[in-house]
């Protein structure tokens, strides 16, 4: 999987590269509009992370260019502006997703995976992890063919943790992803714990070969023993 990160902020870029490389992606970077333009024209990527505000031009113009070149690269706009207009403009120009800064790395991974899945598997959206099978469309989970009955939130939590397998997912990232954007109004996320507890119990009862670990004070991690 090849990912291109177009981002002018060096620190931000470095963090994203570091984090994405752990997922065994081939990661390339561009820091200016011209550099990005060149790479887009020359190579094909599975996913492009695109910052809107770039030195030398707007990320939206790059999107336009991609469209004109009839490239099918998946694009996630990553913008500090978080403006509705940019979001609408970006999605209309064919971007797959819009991720406002600041974001959690876990969220970035989940979005990238989602784009890659949509691009590569074209609908047959069943993910497998050890003896766990997840149907993303039907929102169903099986352990060795036996269905696991999860409520919507448990399903979302599981999927998010699976998308970030072996990575640390902070409580905040999980809460914002599962409970919606507005949950950031909550000033503590301890309430997540009860969902995790239920989920763990169900996974264990069905003998799933995954385990949700608590990382003290920060969040959770899904591991495959």
């Amino acid at each position: 999987m090849k990912v291109l990160i177009i981002e002018d902020e060096a620190d931000m870029l470095q963090t994203m590269v570091q984090s994405l490389k752990k997922e065994q992606y081939v990661v390339e970077t561009a820091q200016t509009y011209d550099e990005a333009q060149e790479k887009i024209a020359l190579y094909a990527y599975d996913c492009i992370l695109l910052d809107i505000g770039l030195p030398g031009g707007s990320g939206l113009d790059l999107l336009q260019e991609l469209k004109e070149l009839q490239k099918t690269d998946g694009v996630i706009i990553v913008s500090a502006k978080n403006s509705v207009d940019d979001r609408v403009a970006g999605l209309e120009l064919g971007a797959d997703d819009y991720l406002p800064k600041p974001f959690h790395m876990a969220e970035l991974h989940a979005r990238v995976k989602s784009v890659l899945r949509r691009r590569k598997f074209e609908g047959s959206n069943v993910q497998t992890l050890q003896n766990l099978q997840i149907d993303l469309d039907k929102h169903l989970v099986w352990v060795e063919g036996q269905e696991l009955s999860l409520n919507r939130k448990e399903f979302d939590v599981l999927l998010y943790l699976v998308s970030n397998k072996d990575r640390l997912v902070s409580k905040t990232a999980l809460a914002e992803h599962v409970w919606g954007d507005y949950i950031d109004q909550a000033d503590n996320y301890e309430f997540i714990y009860s969902q995790i507890k239920n989920l763990r119990k169900k996974l264990k009862d069905h003998g799933a070969q995954v385990e949700i670990q608590a990382v003290y004070g920060i969040g959770y991690k899904l591991i495959t023993p």
Binding site: E9, M12, M16, A80, K101, H104, M105, A106, L168
Partner: peptide, 19 residues
């Protein structure tokens, strides 16, 4: 607005560190 990026970077670096 200007605080956003440094905050995001700091948080992400800490996430990496913890990981």
């Amino acid at each position: 607005h200007e605080l956003q990026t440094p905050l995001a970077i700091s948080l992400n670096k800490l996430e990496l560190l913890a990981e």
